[in-house]
Write a protein that binds this DNA or RNA. Structure first.
Length: 489
RNA sequence: GGUAUCGUGGCCGAGUGGCUAGGCUAUGCUCUGCAAAAGCAUCUACAGCAGUUCGAAUCUGCUCGAUACCUCCA
């Protein structure tokens, strides 16, 4: 491959040229959802971000194994529930089996991701399906002397670990700072040091999700699943690990420590983190009460939403910002994105009907080059989209007869749009899914009648048709070649 | 308190030591029977202060402000 992809590596805080471990192959692990609640905007960001990374790497002729976990064992909760498993807690409240809840929300998550046109990962392992692997890993860490058992729980001995491996390299912390900022938590009396973290936890009597282990009945520690499953499917060291920025510490820092403690090698070469989504300038969070789930977005039922927004509008909106920037959701911004997206997709359609000339006033090759350059630079989708809008202007100008493209450039432009808009950015026209042939045929007839009316200067009828369709939410667009229509938002 | 990130035009949002980001909005023009769409044009910003430099919005320092992580979270 002649092009070089640069990735911003959280580990070094620099952009680095991407070189995979195995030539032409990429192993990528992304932290997936904890399936104990409805999928929300926060899930959309990494879903879409790494979907584009996945698509672009594949387009760049890498064979990619994309692993994204489903966390169904639940993480610990450190509130009044005394460390009760999240999923177990919800199950008890709703009188359901834990796996029933897990199943329900896993399906919701899959549906939301499909709506957003995110490709399914290559492997989607579940934490509960890999308890044995996690126990084995804990055993190995114990054997290597980096962990200790207390009363049925096993903790990673961070101070001991830090003697051999630097702890805190990913998040830029050291043990002293971490200790200083650590609050007193439940179960801390068992730990040798406040910075130690559980890799296996003893199950309390009310804990429903529990497994037998060499240390008694319990469940895996907060961070074990990712270490165990990434190693199983991608190896002891793999290329890319992704996730939200909020996972840098402690989750990913712990993963690095576990892998080093177990395998004596760094698990990941390139760490990628997407930034947070904000609503009204604040992080969306359960505790803040400002979180909007995806279903509410798609049907507009949340109080903060003026109306519904299509999944593709959200996808476009998210990709119009760089993945390492925060993106603030507001009705105004979403509606602007929606219009921009419609403009882009309309140009895609126009591209299919314009015809070639003998000469070109535009260099399509230069556009292609710019698009690749943008994506090679740490997956810069906003720049890519800006370049594509340059193409949009050309397409519309060609239609107006103000610019021209020869057949070579026209084909190239079609190729660019299919590649970048459809394949890489993953945008699909809402028309494709929303309407059927019957509608199209009826509309063709209506437009034909209106055109006839216009020809015979019966503007009263022509305007009546236009106005009535407008009331029904259909917009008529006249041009030299004839009329077309689209459903208004 | 510790660790990071960020402050860009009416709004959203890129970028960067010197040359137009882009989208949305607004105004004008062109096209059109009219309108819409589309094209063109205009509105030309980089929190504040000081420094480095021939030149900084871009580098350095300070000030102010915002956000995030340090606790489950994407």
């Amino acid at each position: 491959m002649s092009r070089k992809i640069q990735i911003f590596n959280t580990l070094t805080r620099k952009k680095e040229v991407f070189n995979p471990i195995v030539e032409n192959h990429v192993g990528m692990y992304v932290c997936g959802p904890t399936v104990y609640g409805d999928p929300h905007l926060g899930h959309a960001r990494p879903g879409i971000t790494f979907d584009v990374v996945f698509r672009y790497l594949k387009h760049s002729e890498y064979k990619v194994r994309y692993v994204r976990n489903i966390t169904d064992a639940g993480h610990l909760e450190n509130d009044a529930d005394e460390g009760e498993d999240k999923i177990a807690k919800k199950a008890r409240l709703e009188q359901l089996e834990p796996m029933e809840i897990v199943q329900f929300y896993t399906i919701s998550y899959h549906k939301a991701m499909a709506d957003l046109n995110c490709l399914p990962p290559s492997i989607e392992p579940r934490a509960t399906g890999h308890i044995i692997e996690q126990i084995e890993m804990v055993q190995q860490i114990l054997k290597n002397g980096f962990a200790y058992e207390v009363n049925g729980s096993v903790y990673l001995d961070v101070n001991k670990y830090n003697e051999k491996y630097p702890y805190g390299t990913l998040s830029g912390r050291n043990i002293e700072d971490t200790l200083e900022g650590t609050r007193s938590l439940d179960g801390q009396t068992e730990k040798k040091s406040a910075v130690d973290f559980a890799i296996w936890k003893k199950a309390s009597p009310e804990h429903i999700m529990r497994w037998s282990s060499p240390w008694g009945e319990g469940f895996p520690g907060w961070h074990m699943e990712c270490s165990a499953m990434s190693e199983k499917y991608l190896g002891k060291t793999f290329d890319i690990h992704g996730g939200g920025m909020d996972l840098v510490f402690p989750h990913h820092e712990a993963e690095i420590a576990q892998s080093n403690a177990c395998n004596a090698c760094n698990p990941v070469n390139y760490w990628m983190h997407n930034n947070m989504i904000t609503v009204d300038g604040k992080k969306m969070g359960k505790s803040l009460g400002n979180f909007i789930n995806l279903e509410e977005f798609f049907n507009g039922s949340h109080d903060k939403l003026e109306r519904a927004y299509a999944p593709m509008t959200i996808r476009f909106f998210i990709l119009q910002a760089h993945y390492r920037s925060t993106v603030d959701f507001s009705n105004e911004a979403l509606q602007a994105a929606e219009k921009g997206f419609t403009k882009l997709m309309n140009a895609m359609e126009t591209l299919g009907v314009i015809s070639a000339s003998d000469t070109s006033t535009y260099d399509a090759n230069a556009l292609e080059e710019k698009c690749y350059t943008a994506m090679d630079d740490d997956f810069n989708t906003p720049i890519l989209i800006a370049h594509l809008f340059d193409g949009v202007r050309i397409i519309n100008s060609v239609k107006d007869g103000k610019e021209s493209l020869n057949s070579v450039d026209l084909e190239k432009l079609k190729n660019i749009f299919n590649t970048f808009v459809t394949d890489i950015l993953g945008f699909i026209s809402s028309k494709e899914s929303g309407e059927n042939n019957l509608t199209n045929e009826v509309m063709d007839l209506v437009l034909q009648l209106r055109t006839n009316a216009k020809k015979s200067k019966d503007f009263e009828t022509a305007d009546l048709i236009r106005e009535e369709l407008d009331k029904a939410g259909i917009q008529i667009k006249d041009s030299r070649e004839g009329s077309s229509w689209e459903v208004k938002n």
